[in-house]
Simulated scan of single mutants.
Amino acid sequence: MHPLPASASVRVRRAELSDLDDLVTLEESSFDTDRLSRAQYRRHLDSDSALVLVASANHRNFLGTAVVFFRKGSRVARLYSIASKPETRGKGVGAALLDAVEAAARQRRCHAVRLEVRDDNAGAVRLYERHGYRHIGHYPHYYQDGTHAWRYEKSLD
C-alpha cells in the first residue's frame, strides 16, 4: 500500500460484512495478543451493543478500525480497540476514529468514553491525551502477555 497522501481525507463509517477480511487482517498485524477473532468481529457487526467503525481514504482504501461497546443501562461507552495500518500512523486516522467513537457515544446519550491501553504503547497514550482523555487508573498484568494497562476516560458533557 502507498502512504496516505497529505491531501487525502479520512472518512469513517460503520463497518460492513464486506470489511471482515480487512478487519481480521489488521487485527492480526496490529496485536500479538488479546485479538478479536473473525467470529467475534462477525458477531459485533450485527450487535446493537457494539459498533465497529472503519477509516478509509480515496474510496475503499482501508486504513484503520475502532470497536466500541455500549452496555445497556450505562452512560459510559467503552473503546475496546483501535488500530491503524502502520504506514498511516500519525496521519489523522486514529484522531478521525476517536472523533467518530465520541460522536457515536454522544448519539447514544453516553456522558463518557473509557478505554484501557498498554502502558508501553506511548503513541496511543499520546493520542488519547491529546484528545482530552485523562488517566483514571492502572491495571497490573491486564493483558494476556502480562503487560500492564492504563485506564483513561473522556467526559463528553
Results as ranks from 00 to 15, higher is better:
Arg78Gln: 13
Phe70Cys: 00
Asn61Asp: 15
Ala57Asp: 01
Val52Phe: 08
Val54Pro: 00
Ala50Asn: 10
Gln40Pro: 00
Ser81Ala: 07
Thr33Trp: 10
Asn58Ile: 00
Gln40Val: 03
Asn61Lys: 11
Arg42Gln: 15
Asp34Gly: 02
Ala77Thr: 03
Thr65Gln: 12
Asp34Met: 04
Gln40Phe: 02
His59Gln: 14
Arg43Asn: 04
Arg35Lys: 10
Ser74Asp: 13
Ser49Tyr: 08
Gln40Cys: 01
Ala50Met: 10
Ser74Tyr: 12
Arg43His: 12
Asn58Trp: 04
Asn61His: 14
Tyr41Asp: 02
Leu45Lys: 04
Val68Tyr: 08
His59Leu: 14
Thr33His: 13
Tyr80Glu: 04
Gly64Ser: 07
Leu36Thr: 00
Tyr41Phe: 15
Leu63Ala: 09
His44Gly: 00
His59Ala: 14
Val54Gln: 03
Ala66Trp: 09
Val76Gln: 11
Ser47Phe: 05
Gly64Tyr: 10
Asp34Leu: 05
Ser49Arg: 12
Ala39Gln: 12
Ala57His: 03
Ala50His: 15
Ala50Ile: 01
Thr65Asp: 01
Leu53Tyr: 08
Gly73Ser: 02
His59Lys: 12
His44Tyr: 15
Ala66Thr: 11
Thr65Lys: 12
Ser56Met: 11
Arg35Ile: 02
Phe70Lys: 00
Phe70Val: 03
Ala83Ser: 13
Asp34Asn: 05
Ser81Cys: 08
Leu53Glu: 09
Ala55Arg: 06
Leu53Cys: 10
Ala83Trp: 05
Arg42Ile: 01
Leu53Arg: 07
Ala66Met: 09
Val52Arg: 01
His59Pro: 12
Leu63Trp: 05
Asp48Cys: 00
Arg42Leu: 14
Thr33Gln: 07
Gly64Asn: 09
Arg71Val: 14
Ser84Leu: 05
Ser84Trp: 06
His59Tyr: 12
Arg75Gly: 11
Val67Asn: 07
Lys85Ile: 11
Arg43Pro: 00
Ala57Lys: 02
Asn58Met: 10
Val67Arg: 02
Arg71Pro: 06
Val54Asn: 01
Ser81Lys: 13
Thr65Arg: 10
Ala77Ile: 03
Ala83Met: 05
Thr33Phe: 14
Arg60Asn: 14
Lys72Asp: 08
Ser84Ala: 15
Leu51Trp: 05
Thr33Asn: 06
Arg35Ala: 02
Gln40Leu: 11
Arg43Ala: 12
Val76Thr: 15
Arg75Pro: 02
Ala66Leu: 07
Asn58Asp: 15
Arg35Asp: 01
Arg60His: 14
Phe62Gln: 04
Leu79Arg: 01
Ser81Arg: 15
Leu51Tyr: 03
Asp46Ala: 14
Asn58Leu: 13
Leu51Arg: 07
Thr33Arg: 05
Leu45Phe: 05
Leu53His: 07
Ala83Thr: 09
His44Ile: 03
Phe69Tyr: 13
Ala77Glu: 07
Leu63Val: 07
Phe70Asn: 01
Asn58Cys: 09
Val54Cys: 05
Val52Lys: 02
Gln40Tyr: 01
Ser81Pro: 00
Ser47Leu: 06
Arg60Gln: 14
Leu36Lys: 02
Gly73Lys: 02
Leu45Ala: 06
His44Lys: 10
